[in-house]
Simulated scan of single mutants.
Amino acid sequence: MTAVVVSDTSDRPTELGSGGVAMPAAAPDGRPSGEPARTEPAPSALRVASTMLLLLSFVVLIFATYIGAFSSLHHARAQYTSYANFRKELAQATAPVGPTRPDDPSKLLAQGTAVAVLSIPRIDLREVVFEGTTGSILQNGPGHLRNTPMPGQSGVSVIMGRATTYGGPFGQLSTLNPGDTFTVTTGQGVSTFRVLGVRRGGDPFPPPVAAGGGRLTLTTADGSPLLPSGVLRVDADLTSPALPTPPMPLTRRDLSTAELALGTDQFAWMQLVLWGQALVAAAVLLAVARLHWGRWQVWTVSVPVLVFFCVGTADQIARLLPNLM
């Protein structure tokens, strides 16, 4: 049998296979010359690093979304449950009426306890007010400054609230006008207030409170959202009879800096470190899992895990931000 040689116009050499049929010569790496080169997989360390970077970018996105939008869900839930419980306390006459516990006057009222309901029809606001003004308490709603009398009692009472984050319940205070009225309900009854005006840093103070009279100052952040530049206050005089005022055992020195206007809670650093470590550990484990699982399997597991740790971390970071923001 005569061998038939098929000419190849390319520069690649040919080989004769069985039966004398010409076959393409093998490439230097052992693959057939007509087969495209195989891409080597990326090194494991590079894949882990790229996956971690992607996961951490996802974490930052979740944090920004939570603080900017979904923190209001935290506030709404706290208000819903607290309002139901406080109504029950009002009906049973067990709601607190002073800085000490109703069942044990020798002990201070626990911070975070519901003490009043603030209703301002002009801005469609109805909020449960809690004892204390730290950032973590103001996540749930407005807070009563502990060294001031309860709203409706003699003297000047102060209630603080957030302007933007966690529902921003006091975000519309600047729209109140002199003469607007609102009410505050406490364990002693309903008190009515009339707005004197809105003041910012550098504005003159209102006239002193009349002897035996009461005043309520609503306080929040002033300036651009998430970038407070000062403090905004709304002063309102009590127009209903002043309620009995129990002794005040607290002074300005008994308050921490976290309870003052635009204060930050430095005790949140420890919990933030713990939550941050857990978040980074979860990101590392999920990045390593990418070496053994498919992309979609990793994301299916990582989304709920990262959302959980992001929400916990965001709550701690919020405590380090100004409490009126």
Results as ranks from 00 to 15, higher is better:
134 T>C: 12
69 A>M: 11
112 G>D: 06
66 Y>S: 07
111 Q>W: 00
45 A>W: 10
87 R>V: 14
58 F>Y: 15
113 T>E: 12
17 G>I: 11
63 F>C: 10
23 M>G: 02
136 S>P: 00
56 L>I: 15
58 F>T: 09
28 P>V: 06
99 P>I: 05
100 T>F: 09
36 P>M: 11
28 P>H: 06
116 A>E: 04
148 T>S: 10
92 Q>T: 11
140 N>P: 03
117 V>H: 02
85 N>V: 11
128 V>H: 04
25 A>F: 15
12 R>N: 10
62 I>C: 02
42 A>V: 14
20 G>F: 06
87 R>T: 08
22 A>D: 05
133 T>W: 00
80 Y>K: 03
28 P>S: 15
60 V>E: 15
100 T>C: 08
30 G>C: 10
76 A>F: 03
99 P>E: 12
6 V>F: 07
78 A>H: 01
142 P>Y: 03
128 V>W: 03
62 I>R: 00
101 R>F: 05
115 V>K: 01
27 A>R: 14
145 L>K: 03
53 L>S: 15
20 G>T: 15
46 L>G: 06
21 V>C: 10
73 L>H: 07
19 G>D: 11
69 A>L: 14
38 R>S: 15
97 V>I: 12
39 T>D: 14
104 D>F: 15
51 T>H: 01
131 E>Y: 05
123 I>C: 12
114 A>H: 00
138 L>T: 00
107 K>E: 12
109 L>F: 09
32 P>V: 08
126 R>N: 15
25 A>G: 14
57 S>W: 05
51 T>M: 09
138 L>Y: 00
18 S>I: 14
72 S>I: 04
90 L>E: 06
113 T>P: 02
70 F>S: 08
32 P>E: 13
121 P>D: 07
6 V>C: 02
26 A>T: 07
87 R>W: 03
130 F>T: 00
87 R>P: 00
30 G>K: 13
106 S>E: 04
49 A>M: 08
63 F>I: 14
19 G>L: 15
31 R>I: 08
20 G>H: 04
133 T>K: 02
93 A>L: 06
62 I>F: 08
6 V>W: 02
88 K>S: 10
62 I>S: 01
79 Q>Y: 10
59 V>D: 01
40 E>W: 07
